[in-house]
């Protein structure tokens, strides 16, 4: 309870600072205050494009995220088993992590349609983090437990279910926690540059073009909320899975 109160007061302090800054700037085009954004939030959901834009972006960010999880996990297992795979993937993963999202978007626009760019970008930021986290987990698997599997002649399925999965699960959970927010950031950035019709990114681009700061910041607040909700949902599912894994 005390923790919640502390967090609420921090949010409140930021809102006050924001409102003061808006008051001194005296231009709602340059910087509108939190009250203006709140007012717009109360009406924006009635717009005909609102639900469709959220569904469009949510679907593509989720597709990219889960694709990144899947491929990152598969590649980590392959790299953990065969060192040539690890060596081969090292420059690729390092490059994907280091190159700025905007640069990748510009390059990818030549090859991909704007509609699917956010799927690819979300995938691209998620995959290397999941790969790296799981590979670290595989490298730190307890060799003593591997001996247990050998002497008790455990089948590969049991070895994975009982020996490896419980040890790798925390690494996977940490990767999910970090990348769920990153997927939203990358997906929206891709949409703002590629402006596919019916997306949140397109709405933000239009709001910027027509100097509608309230709309722009309202969408930003909605994205933060969506990102937080999806992270909480994902962590809840993973917690349940962890309990099932631990509690039998």
């Amino acid at each position: 309870m005390r923790e919640i109160l502390k967090r609420m007061s921090a949010v409140f302090a930021v809102l006050i600072l924001w409102q003061m800054a808006a008051f001194f700037v005296k231009s709602s085009i340059l910087l509108c205050g939190p009250l203006d954004v709140l007012k717009r939030l109360c009406t924006i959901w009635k717009e005909p494009y609102f639900a469709a834009a959220i569904f469009f972006t949510l679907r593509r960010v989720a597709e990219g995220f889960f694709l990144g999880l899947l491929l990152g996990a598969i590649l980590a297992f392959l790299a953990g088993k065969w060192s040539p795979v690890r060596i081969f993937l090292w420059p690729l993963m390092a490059a994907v992590k280091a190159v700025p999202v905007a640069a990748i978007v510009v390059i990818c626009l030549i090859w991909l349609s704007g509609r699917n760019l956010s799927v690819f970008l979300s995938f691209l930021v998620v995959c290397p983090v999941v790969y790296q986290n799981l590979l670290t987990g595989i490298d730190s698997l307890d060799p003593g437990m591997e001996e247990v599997a050998v002497v008790f002649c455990m089948t590969p399925v049991r070895r994975f279910r009982f020996i490896r999965l419980p040890q790798l699960f925390p690494y996977f959970t940490a990767a999910c926690k970090v990348t769920s927010g990153m997927a939203w950031k990358a997906g929206i950035a891709a949409e703002i540059i590629a402006t596919p019709a019916g997306s949140i990114g397109k709405q933000m681009y239009l709001a910027k073009t027509y100097l509608q700061s309230e709309d722009l910041l309202s969408w930003a607040v909605i994205i933060v909320a969506l990102s937080m909700i999806s992270e909480k949902l994902l962590m809840g599912i993973l917690r349940k899975a962890s309990e099932r894994l631990g509690g039998g």
Binding site: R158, F169, S242, L245, G248
Partner: peptide, 18 residues
């Protein structure tokens, strides 16, 4: 010499595993 149990799973599952 060490117990070498899967710490994250239950006692029943540790036995069941083998």
């Amino acid at each position: 010499q060490e117990d070498r149990l899967c710490e994250g799973i239950s006692a029943v599952d540790n036995v069941l595993a083998v």
